[in-house]
Design a protein around this nucleic acid. Structure first.
Lengths: 342, 342
DNA sequence: TTGTAAGCGTTATCAA
DNA sequence: TTGATAACGCTTACAA
């Protein structure tokens, strides 16, 4: 294995000094075209590659950003990462992925780790458990841009890129009302997270505006998976006053609902409508396609990345930016009750 | 913003030298318990955090590994990453994700970038276009572990963790034969990739062993998406001698096939059986669940990570390890023609 | 235009 | 057991 070439090797080969080599390599104006050319040539010959670690240590900029999220293997999150990469890679940044597994302690740990690694910024979707904001303040204290995406927590000095969950939920619910549904149930996941709380508020407001009385028994808090959706639907349908529609804050739960309803021979959408949230790809794959609210994860990732880039360029001026993206309801078979929509 | 504390700050506070502080922090035996305790205390007081960049520059170990893949927002790949993280995070490694978008040049670029960032290892699933192995040799020349997962290329000195695609395809095809299918078509994606070539070979062998003559017209090379699957199936069904089953090397294509077959009222599985490959979650979500070959992406990720860890510990002894994981066929409705399976 | 030298935050070697 | 010093590879005042 050949020892790695440094700027000193180039310098030695040309009988000049490392400083000059550095200048040549960095397009510094204070250098003659001749030496510059020679340095570039020799660098190529010796197969010189800059050591980013050394550059980072010197400059204080690692050109790495940390992306923190609950789980990477979720459609939504992996798409957000994709968006972030699209924006950041061309600017020379690398992305370090850290999962929190919805655990506050783990979240604090990975953040500390990222800070130790001297990342230039942190983009995060907070874990469900997170209450404490101390680890976020640590980031800001170091003057490192902190950008929340999707799931945020209010921290002074941090920016955020979120979806208008309230609006998404409102539209979904209004759509169900427009289809003639009178008793619309709601599946929520974790009301301590803003996204879910906003969805339930949007749902409530739409009911109100539609002249439908809110029924506490029709709101169920469950895990975001198919089984939970099935079970919850079973219970709902056994109520004295069962619903005729479900607006689910989660796609898997919506799928579970549909599966149970089919098993008890409830016709969808004729007798029962279902709308999910996230527009997960699978919602379009079924024979009975599922209506869902799209969160545009790619755009969210790109936007979060752009906000980071703005902040990094603004030197010491602290900007605190809150971007809210507009959701879009994808109406599919599971809620197309009216002929006019067919 | 408080200036960051370094070991010098601790040293100054205690009237000792940075070297001593370093020793205390690193559990070096050559230090008195007293000073060690004092250092630890002061470090805590001053909120000292090690600078991983400096440590990395000094030691030559960045504690970062690069994970290269075509696209991160694919179920399979995001699950592999999940597996890699599970294994590597507890060992103090961070994972830098790089996408190649199936482009050889981009692949070479990100690898160069990772090398410049002094990663301690590279785990990669090669892009479809990749023919040249020069960028891989660059890695090995620097004595950095190179581990291929899923999609590999033969490079001397590199390790690999792959699936026995041949076996998976063989089982899937045999299963179709066992169900009584006589004319089994095959969808492949890109035969220049070993995984697809192995699948087609396994398919051929199973046909042979089952006494079925291989029919060139029943093998179709298409993109891995639903539309392509639909179109290809349409063409197949218009042949003078249409197939009665499809073994697809891609799940989306299998879904496309099913969608087209349904649209022309072919009964599945009674008149036509379909088996996919990857066991993507959606295959279980449909009403007509789709049989598929599971690739155990999580295990693949964990295994690749373990191989890396072995190599990193083996100092200069060069080990070249080839791990082959066993696929498992998930039999579902789309291919359960025989009553005995119902 | 180029060279000198210090410094980024650590750790390792050698002395004391 | 501790200190002094050099080194990792690079950049940047300041001098020449």
């Amino acid at each position: 294995m050949s020892k790695k070439t440094t700027i000193y090797d180039i310098a030695k080969a040309l009988n000049i000094t490392a400083a000059t080599v550095s200048r040549a390599l960095n397009n510094n104006p204070r250098i003659s075209d001749d030496t510059k050319r020679m340095v570039l040539e020799t660098a190529a010959e010796l197969n010189y590659k800059p050591n980013r670690l050394a550059m980072a240590l010197k400059s204080g900029k690692s050109k790495n950003v940390g992306v923190v999220l609950p789980y990477i293997n979720r459609t939504f999150f992996s798409n957000v990462i994709h968006g972030i990469e699209e924006e950041l890679n061309p600017m020379g940044y690398n992305v370090i992925i850290c999962q929190t597994h919805e655990d506050e302690k783990k979240e604090a740990d990975v953040i500390q780790n990222l800070l130790n690694a001297q990342v230039d910024g942190i983009l995060i979707s907070v874990s469900r458990e997170t209450k404490n904001t101390e680890h976020f303040n640590q980031i800001l204290k170091k003057n490192i841009p902190l950008i929340f995406y999707d799931r945020k927590i209010n921290v002074k000095g941090a920016s955020s890129v979120t979806l208008d969950d309230y609006q998404g939920a409102y539209e979904a619910t209004k759509h169900l009302i427009d289809q003639g549904c009178k008793k619309i149930a709601h599946f929520t996941v974790d009301r301590s997270l803003e996204i879910y709380e906003n969805r339930i508020q949007g749902y409530k407001q739409a009911l109100k505006d539609g002249g439908i009385k809110f029924n506490m028994n029709h709101v169920v808090t469950i895990e975001s998976d198919i089984e939970a959706g099935k079970e919850a639907t079973k219970k709902l349908m056994e109520l004295a006053n069962p619903p005729d529609a479900i607006f689910s804050a989660s796609d898997p739960c919506a799928l579970g609902a549909i599966q149970h309803l089919k098993s008890i021979n409830v016709r969808i959408p004729e007798d029962f409508c279902v709308v999910g949230f996230s527009n997960d790809p699978f919602t379009q794959f079924m024979e009975l396609t599922i209506s869902s609210v799209d969160q545009s994860p790619l755009l969210m990732g790109r936007t979060a990345a752009k906000v980071f880039l703005e902040q990094i360029n603004e030197d010491d001026i602290k900007i605190e930016k809150q971007v809210v993206l507009t959701p879009s309801l994808k109406i599919r078979k599971s809620s197309m009750k009216l002929d006019s929509d067919l």
